[in-house]
Write a protein that binds this DNA or RNA. Structure first.
Lengths: 230, 230
DNA sequence: AAAAGAAATTGATACAGATCAATACCTTGA
DNA sequence: TCAAGGTATTGATCTGTATCAATTTCTTTT
C-alpha cells in the first residue's frame, strides 16, 4: 500500500482526522503497515498490549471467548478505526481478542513510541480520549441492553443504529453474517432467526438473504424502546 | 472541606496520583468543591456533559434506567474516583445517570477549563487515558459475563474481585445493599437471595446480614470460571 | 453441473431466571 | 415498647431463550 493512500485513510479517521498534514506524516513514521489474511489473529486476550492497529481496509472482530467455546463479539471494526488501542494506556493486557474477518491492510503503532509522541501532540491525546469516550458509551448501552432488554429490543436497536449510519436509508445490507450478528447481540443464531421471522410477519421488516428492508421504522423504534413486539 | 484535605485525596487518586504538588495546586484552582446530600442526582442521562466530578468522600452509583422503572447499576464509585469524566471528551451527552448513595463531598471540574489545561499537561492526559482504559476493561468483562455466564458465575466473580480488593481477606462486608448488588450483577434481588442461599448450602459461603465469609475460595473461583455450582 | 460444505431455518424440549405475592426480618423513631 | 417502613427471604408460576437435532437453502469447489 502506498504512503499517500495510507495518509488519506488516516486523515479520514476519527483518531487522526483533526491533524495537519505535517503531523500525519510524523505519525506515519512511528509505525509500519502490513497485510493480514482472513482469519488472522491480531492479538489474544491476556497478551501484553505492545501497541495497537489502525485498520486501513477490511474488517476485524473484537471478541471474548470462554473455554467452553462460546464467544461474544464486542465490536466489528472497519477502515479507519483503531483496534486494541485502549489497554495500552492502562498498562494492562488485552482484555479481549481480535481477528480479521477478511483480508485486511493494517497500520501498527508500537506502544512506547506512540505514548511518547502523545506528550508532544496534545490534540492527538484529546482525539484519543474522544475515541475511548465513544467506546465507553457504546459499551454502556450494550450493558444496559443485555441486562434490561430482551432480544427483540436489542435487535431493533441495532437495526436503528444501522439505519442511522446509512443516512436513514430503509434498505440495508447486513455488514455481517447472521451468526455474527447473533453473537454481537448476545444471543444464538436460532433465536435471531426466529425473531427476524416474527418481525417480518408483524410487518416491521422484509428479509431477503442479508438484505433487509425496514417497512415500519416507527414501530421498530418502539420495539427498541419498550421491548415488546406487536 | 479544607484545601489540604482535598489535595491529599486528589494526590491519592488514580487520576491525579502521578502529579507533582505544583500541578495539583493548579488543578485545584480549576474547579470547586461542594457537598451533596444522600440521594442527590449529579447528572442525568442525556444531559450535556459540562464537566465531571471527583468524589472526595462518600459513594456514588452510576446507572442506566429504562422508562419501565428498571435500572442497571454500571459502577459504584468511592473516594478519589472520577464521575462522569468520559463523555466530556467525545462531546457527547452523559450516557448514564449518577446519584449519591450517601452524603458526599465532591470536586467539580468544568469541561472547557479542564480540557484546555490538558493541553499543557501531557502527564494528566495520559493519566486520564489510563482511567478510561481501565473502565473499558471492566465493561468488557461485564459484557462477557452478561452475555455468556449465568448469575452464579457473575456473583462468584464479583466476590472474588471484592476479596482481591480487601487484600485476600476471606471475611467481607458488602459495600452495598443486596438489592444494589443484584442490579450490579444484572439480576433481581430474589434471584440473588436464592443463589446466595445455594452457595451457603453448597459450603462456599457463610452469610450473616451483609457480612459474608468465604469458606471455599478455590471452589468459588471455579464457579466464576465454569459457571456451574456443586 | 454435481458434490460437498457452510449458513440459516424450523421444530421440540428443558431450564434459568423474572415476576408476583406473601411473609419474615431488621431498623429507626415516637 | 410498639409501630412503621424499608430490606430481605421464600414460595409458586410463567416465559424467554438456550440447546439439540433435523432439514433446507445457499455457496463454493472441482
Amino acid at each position: 500500500m502506498k504512503e499517500a493512500e495510507i495518509i488519506e485513510i488516516l486523515a479520514g479517521s476519527l483518531l487522526f482526522g483533526g491533524l495537519e498534514d505535517r503531523a500525519l506524516k510524523t505519525v506515519l513514521t512511528l509505525g509500519r503497515s502490513r497485510a493480514a489474511l482472513r482469519g488472522e489473529l491480531l492479538f489474544q486476550e491476556g497478551e501484553a498490549a505492545t501497541g495497537f492497529f489502525v485498520l486501513l481496509s477490511g474488517k476485524v472482530k473484537v471478541f471474548k471467548a470462554t473455554f467452553e467455546g462460546k464467544e461474544k463479539i464486542l465490536h466489528i471494526l472497519g477502515p479507519g478505526e483503531p483496534v486494541g488501542e485502549a489497554p495500552m494506556f492502562g498498562g494492562i493486557p488485552y482484555p479481549a481478542s481480535a481477528q480479521t474477518l477478511e483480508p485486511c491492510q493494517l497500520f501498527f503503532l508500537p506502544r512506547e513510541v506512540f505514548i511518547d509522541k502523545l506528550k508532544d501532540m496534545p490534540e492527538l491525546a484529546l482525539a484519543m480520549l474522544a475515541v475511548l469516550s465513544r467506546r465507553l458509551r457504546v459499551f454502556t448501552t450494550q450493558i444496559e441492553h443485555l441486562a434490561l432488554k430482551e432480544v427483540p429490543a436489542r435487535l431493533a436497536a441495532y437495526l436503528n443504529t444501522l439505519k442511522e449510519e446509512c443516512g436513514g436509508e430503509t434498505s440495508l445490507v447486513l455488514p455481517l453474517s447472521k451468526a455474527q450478528l447473533a453473537s454481537l447481540l448476545g444471543t444464538s443464531p436460532e433465536t435471531l432467526s426466529r425473531i427476524l421471522g416474527r418481525m417480518v410477519t408483524a410487518g416491521y421488516l422484509n428479509v431477503t438473504g442479508n438484505i433487509l428492508e425496514i417497512c415500519d421504522p416507527e414501530g421498530l423504534a418502539q420495539v427498541a424502546e419498550e421491548g415488546r413486539m406487536e
